[in-house]
Design a protein around this nucleic acid. Structure first.
Lengths: 273, 273
DNA sequence: TAGTGGTCTAGACCACCGT
DNA sequence: CGGTGGTCTAGACCACTAA
């Protein structure tokens, strides 16, 4: 049963260093809500119980529940909507849809959430058109370096997707996406082609895997011969390599993505706060 | 006098669109504290008055002051220290020192604030050594494109700094930094050479200009002949171009920086939340 | 020990949303 | 209208820091 110990007691933090970590009440509540999210008790897009209801359930004050939800909302795991309730964040929603897409056309205005970045999939969404074409989608055994990034054993099954994003007919991003095979069983090129919308929305809806965080490493690299051919640029021309590892609940890596970007007319935007 | 109107009233937001913007009490308090920071009433590194004191001064409850400070702390403008007080953030402090430095050696562990990124200036700070050499520092009239970025009139005085960062003796970043001449009067190559520590700490301490936010645009570019010579790489080899505009209080741009990075052994790290 | 921020509570009222 | 999140208050107690 969900029970909470009043005085500052252990939370679900699993302290990295020494003894067990102790945490305030609101962190324990936070952990309990997180469990509900991770276990699928409340699914993306759905509302979680109201603050008063949760307060009653966990036997704490509304203010404490509030503080727990505040943190989860700050991490974009929950979304508050005044007068309606608190909802589980979803990649299907327009607000958070482009949270992980930092490539923008050069003529776009600055600003973090300034209306209209490039669209993620077929069709336009905000002013710029970015069409996606799946080049291949196949299953194979994980190369050691991919296995390491995804915390799999070397040789375990993975899915490899290769796709080309074009902006106004010009090849702009070539993505190479590695996913753990176990989580993404029925995934195929047809399935990807049939889906209209962000890829992460597909993962979330069809495979119950929600990406909540990602680490990216960027480098400038020279186009190899094959890359150059696929992207219709000169061999050796500079490409922006974006290497991303995405995580679901519990710090679990579930995607390794390498994107090669032509940055003549686009750039990677980042705001430092 | 600092007086606060109880019912939801206008704050210092200066609404961009339609009529005047209204804001809750804690936002008004936030704006008042912000004024204190901007006016220099409380300087970087110093403590601001305690929560109870501010609550008394502004005639609100401590909880309201607390919420205002919470926001400013989340934006890294203030730093809370339990048992000691609340302090104005400073680039001199180790914690926030490397907030704007995203370039890391490839062998560094991931993680946002994982202990030891590359050091910003002469001497090492955490395991990696990065030495800075000022190539030039001169005053000139702002090219139109620089003037635009810094919100100056074309032809106004600016300072141009060019510096080379080397990691283990290998040229790694060539920075070209443009600053408004009015804010940075006595700035010279000697002054830069004499300073040991992050450049932003110098700006803050000697020129009263604190950078609180920055927007970056990244591209992959080919090394020009002169760049190639200065960085000892082959002409045409790929470089990571990081174009940054930094802002002080009040959304005022005060720095345009272009960094050309060799990313053989380094990468630009970014965490998406 | 005194002062600071950090947590928790209980209750009042407001703003917003759907019905 | 009832229910939701959003704001504000007042007060109690805890944890940490410095003198």
């Amino acid at each position: 049963m969900n029970e909470v110990t009043k005085p500052t007691a252990a939370a679900g933090d699993a302290g990295a260093g020494g003894g067990p970590t102790f945490a305030p009440l609101y962190r324990q509540i936070r952990a309990l809500i997180l469990q509900g999210l991770q276990s699928g008790e409340w699914k993306p897009g759905e509302a979680i119980p109201s603050e008063v209801e949760l307060a009653a359930r966990y036997r704490v004050s509304q203010g404490t529940v509030r503080k727990a939800i505040d943190e989860l909302a700050a991490e974009h795991l929950l979304v508050r909507r005044q007068g309606r309730g608190t909802f589980v964040a979803s990649h299907r929603e327009v607000r958070t849809q482009f949270r992980f897409l930092r490539l923008r056309p050069d003529d776009a205005p600055a600003g973090e959430d300034t209306a209209a970045p490039a669209a993620a999939a077929q069709g336009d969404a905000g002013g710029m058109t970015m069409t996606s074409r799946v080049l291949e989608c196949r299953r194979l055994r994980a190369p050691s370096e991919v296995a390491r990034a995804l915390a799999l054993r070397a040789g375990e099954a993975v899915v490899l997707i290769r796709r080309l994003l074009q902006a106004e007919g010009r090849p702009t991003v070539l993505d190479e996406i590695w996913l753990p095979g176990s989580r993404f069983r029925g995934l195929s090129a047809e399935r990807l082609d049939a889906w209209h919308g962000p890829m992460y929305a597909l993962f979330e809806t069809e495979f119950g895997t929600r990406m909540i965080r990602a680490d990216e490493r960027l480098k400038a690299v020279a186009a190899t011969r094959s890359l150059a051919r696929e992207m219709r640029v000169a061999e050796g021309s500079p490409l922006l390599l974006v290497e991303r590892v995405s995580y679901t609940y519990g710090e679990q890596p579930v995607e390794l993505r390498r994107g090669y970007c032509v940055t003549d007319q686009h750039h990677y935007f980042n705001r430092l706060n």
